[in-house]
Design a protein around this nucleic acid. Structure first.
Lengths: 317, 317
DNA sequence: TCCGTGCATGATATCGATATCATACGCAAC
DNA sequence: GTTGCGTATGATATCGATATCATGCACGGA
């Protein structure tokens, strides 16, 4: 910038002002300097600006990146979340610094203006650790603690599926999933509560993985035990698909004998045979909201937790 | 840091040295200062350090984030790439700045020490634009231009499938996909060349989307035209699955009448019915390699393009 | 003529770290 | 006693931008 100033025969502060479109400089000078900067290939030194402004215009997104047998950040869905975040932040001139929990000790995170935590659901300890950084922070997940949390309404999801089953006259529903995960616990809670209102108590089949194989396995163990059931609420679409396949193999028809509902409404769900009923979450919108809240907090506006509605998509199962 | 120095009764440069474990300061002093820094909750100002060191220890990863009908960054696979990158960079004290092409004009990208481009396959213009930044840059994709490119060996993939079909005695293979995409063009080239050696000329069915529906559609149009064929090489697993489903509906058995091979070997491929044969790429390794190369280039070591082997997984189709 | 006002520009300090060169001291060797 | 060397610490300049306060100048009104 100093060089630019010398070449143009003005002071560097004038260059600075010109390049940031300050109305303080004459329009003519401003345009001349911008033109010159462009010609000379001038590149702003962002570190210097960050130092002076005490802002990095960067938000750190911290994801859980465990190996893939559990629900991880690298499932397709949570990633749409990241897409929403990125889009919203970019639109406001902010950048996304992507980190894992391990990488979060790296220096760059401390330079961030704010923090978004994804997929930390079950680790309150991690959340608290990042809270200590004293940065504006928003967490994706189930509400209920002292932080600003954005999440989709898992309880409502469970509730909707319960009502759906009841309407269909199902009396012996099963829930498949891992209730240790806070978000899934919410689904279970909504499910159980809504059913209780109709005097029904569902069965819980605990399965930790979100795979097709796990869904099949769940149905097999259920049939082996000889427990009667006529509806399955699986907390992921893959689990649901596995369940349907196993049920067919075992001679039970879907949806004739058993109704099945999945969760997430992945694109494949609609083209599954038979087309899978599922609960849809708007991840993109969730990402946008997360981003909006951090930005607001960075600008010292108070924010609070918020829950996004979900939608039960009834297809043929 | 100045405050720390005052409290400890030393100069700030001594504090700086102590905190960076410099051997220049007495061990006793060093430990005392580190302890003190911890107690006072001192946080290094990363912008200041970046400014002084002229390094941000940050690598910008620029992804393509189009809406989801085409192959995008938010497919599960390319994301494993991101996982590999992130892991490798983190291990070397670098952070990942995630941006889209649109967001890349944002200031923070200019502060990066290096650039990784993902999913820019078909847009050489974009690649060139980023090259102008003058930063060390590595591109994921098909080799052949003037940049350092890392990619999996798509040509070998096509080749392997061709040989596989020939071994099975297939004489009328079809390729389904969009050859405008450079990586897919490579697959086609490998496929065509290997078949030519056996005097076989495959049919090309151009399909731009990577969906199940698109795969089904391709088979329908093929049957409508009455063209004879006995093997299908689809350039994604979803396309392959769609093809298989359509073929079954149309009364042709897989693999009896028609052999089908997909690409990517997504987890679902193994549990598809029948289990899908597919070409597997090691995305994780690709990410690691991308990261390693940028890091090397950042340290002024010369680097060149590299191609990763792929593996044909033969299952039942 | 003098003053106030508005506009365009400049001088200087500052953000918080690190590199470079300088200094102070103790101790051994001549 | 002086020289030389190694160790521990400090003074100062510097990275490249922006905020604050100051300055120069033209112009209109009293």
């Amino acid at each position: 910038m100093a060089d630019l100033a010398k070449v143009a025969g003005v002071s560097k502060i004038t260059v600075s002002r010109a390049l940031s479109d300050s109305p303080l400089v004459n329009r003519e000078t401003r345009e001349r300097l911008q033109q010159l900067a462009h010609e000379l290939g001038y590149k702003l030194n962002v570190s210097a600006r960050n130092l002076r402004l005490r802002r990095s215009h960067t938000v750190a997104v911290i994801v859980e990146m465990k190996p893939s047998h559990d629900r991880t950040m690298f499932d397709p869905y949570p990633l749409v979340l990241l897409g929403g975040i990125s889009q919203e932040l970019t639109a406001h001139g902010y950048s996304v610094l992507l980190t894992t929990r391990q990488g979060a000790t790296a220096a760059a995170v401390q330079a961030a203006d704010g923090l978004i935590l994804l997929g930390q659901g079950s680790r309150q300890d991690a959340v608290r650790r990042f809270d200590k950084l004293g940065l504006p922070m928003v967490v994706w997940g189930a509400p209920g603690d002292e932080h600003v949390v954005v999440g989709s309404d898992n309880r409502q999801g469970g509730d909707a599926v319960a009502e759906h089953f009841v309407r269909l006259g199902r009396r012996h529903p099963v829930f498949v999933g891992n209730p240790n995960h806070p978000e899934i616990f919410e689904r279970l809670t909504g499910f159980v509560d809504a059913l209780a209102a109709h005097g029904i108590k569902p069965l819980l089949i605990r399965r930790d993985e979100f795979t097709l194989a796990s869904g099949m396995d769940a149905m097999h163990s259920l049939m082996d035990r000889g427990v009667p059931f006529d509806a399955v609420f699986a907390c992921s679409d893959l689990l649901a698909m596995g369940a349907i396949r196993a049920l067919n193999q075992l001679g039970r028809s879907v949806p004739g004998d058993v109704s099945v509902v999945g969760y997430d409404d992945m694109p494949l769900a609609a083209s599954f045979l038979p087309p899978l009923s599922s609960v849809r979450q708007d991840w993109q919108e969730g990402g946008t909201l997360l981003a909006r809240k951090v930005l607001a907090m960075i600008n010292d506006e108070p924010e609070q937790s918020e829950t996004l509605p979900v939608e039960l998509i009834v297809r043929e199962t």
